[in-house]
């Protein structure tokens, strides 16, 4: 049996999945990135190693998410792909008939339109990050509700209040206003869910033909309030797949499997015990002053990231040391 490792390193969460060649999940982990993607990935790989032993053979590694270039260099990825393709591949694997994928993550939200198993259109939130996971996190914290209970509390609402969803700042002042008028917490929370959905549909989903079956993926899909708000707004059933929060990682694993790799570049589970450090410097080659990061494993330079012109990436790593 072949095994593929998929890693999705997002701004808020880091997800790791090991799948077999037919795409079944062998093990999946959902971790908080907590500002340190390298540590999150190492912790995750360490858990897998402790469970399966370090000789667990991996036949291909796919990495996605906003830290994909960094983590790709650290773990030795065979495939480094964007989150949209990864989510589409995973969604299609779970439900080959899917026509719409809604994905809301920590920092961005996407819509993917699929027809006959092919992505025909997609959109991501543009300049504004209102109505993503981080925003819900922040508001839940402000109201003193653990984010895990957000959805359940919101669903107790009978008369949700109307909250402006256009902008995080306005939404927040609206929420405070309603709270000071004595509205119930659950009504404010569900109002927030509705505002997020309204904003999503008019911003990310603008002009898109949203047809069922609709999959709802990404960390925010854990929030039942949002799911229900989507169902009410669209008047149709929303399917939350069982591994909704791991779909990016599963998709990355599927992409690695699809790439038909002869020999994986995976550096092995030993990297969990190795010393991985990064060191930044400012390139003074021109007035762009790019911030370059050097990635070292056991003191050996393995990658350089962040240059605008690309000369640092193209350099022969060993000779430049």
């Amino acid at each position: 049996m072949k095994r593929f490792l998929g890693i999705d390193v997002g701004s808020v969460s880091t997800d790791i999945a090991v799948i077999d060649e037919s795409g079944n999940l062998i093990v999946g982990l959902y971790l908080r990135t907590a500002g340190d993607p390298i540590k999150a990935v190492r912790d995750g790989l360490f858990k897998i190693k402790s469970q399966f032993g370090s000789d667990l053979k991996i036949d291909g590694v796919g990495v996605t998410g906003s830290a994909r270039f960094l983590i790709g260099a650290v773990v030795g990825a065979d495939v480094i792909k964007n989150e949209i393709t990864a989510h589409a591949v995973a969604g299609l694997h779970y439900n080959p008939k899917v026509q719409t994928i809604i994905e809301i993550g920590g920092q961005d939200s996407k819509i993917i339109i699929i027809r006959d198993g092919i992505v025909v259109d997609f959109a991501m939130n543009s300049v504004c990050a209102a109505g993503t996971g981080s925003f819900l996190d922040h508001q839940a914290q402000r109201l003193g509700i653990p984010i895990e209970e957000f959805g359940d509390v919101a669903l107790r609402s009978h008369k949700p209040v109307r909250i402006a969803g256009r902008c995080t700042v306005f939404a927040e002042s609206d929420m405070i206003h309603k709270q000071q008028l004595g509205h119930k917490r659950e009504d404010i929370l569900f109002g927030l869910c509705e505002a997020l959905v309204r904003n999503y549909l008019s911003n990310v989903g603008r002009g898109k033909e949203i047809l069922p079956p609709i999959l709802f993926q990404g960390g925010v899909a854990a929030n039942k309030g949002i799911k229900v708000a989507f169902e009410r707004a669209l008047g149709t059933e929303i399917i939350v797949p069982p591994y909704f929060s791991l779909m990016g990682a599963i998709g990355a694993g599927l992409l690695a499997q699809e790439a038909n790799i002869k020999e994986s570049k995976f550096k092995g589970f030993d990297i969990t015990e190795q010393d991985i450090t990064t060191k930044g410097f400012e390139c003074r080659g021109c007035s762009n002053l790019c911030e370059i990061t050097n990635v070292f494993i056991e003191g050996k330079l393995v990658a350089r990231l962040g240059g605008r012109c690309g000369k640092w990436e193209d350099l022969d790593y060993t000779s430049s040391l």
């Binding site: 393709t85 092919i118 992505v119 997609f122 543009s126």
Partner: peptide
């Protein structure tokens, strides 16, 4: 079709993500 909004931001990553996904879509199509 995809729209890219430009402003002062200097992070390349968001742009790469969108362009890569768009090209992937074209290839698969």
């Amino acid at each position: 079709e995809i729209t890219i909004t430009i402003d002062e931001h200097s992070s390349e990553l968001g742009l790469i993500t969108r362009l890569e996904a768009f090209v992937d879509m074209l290839i698969r199509r």
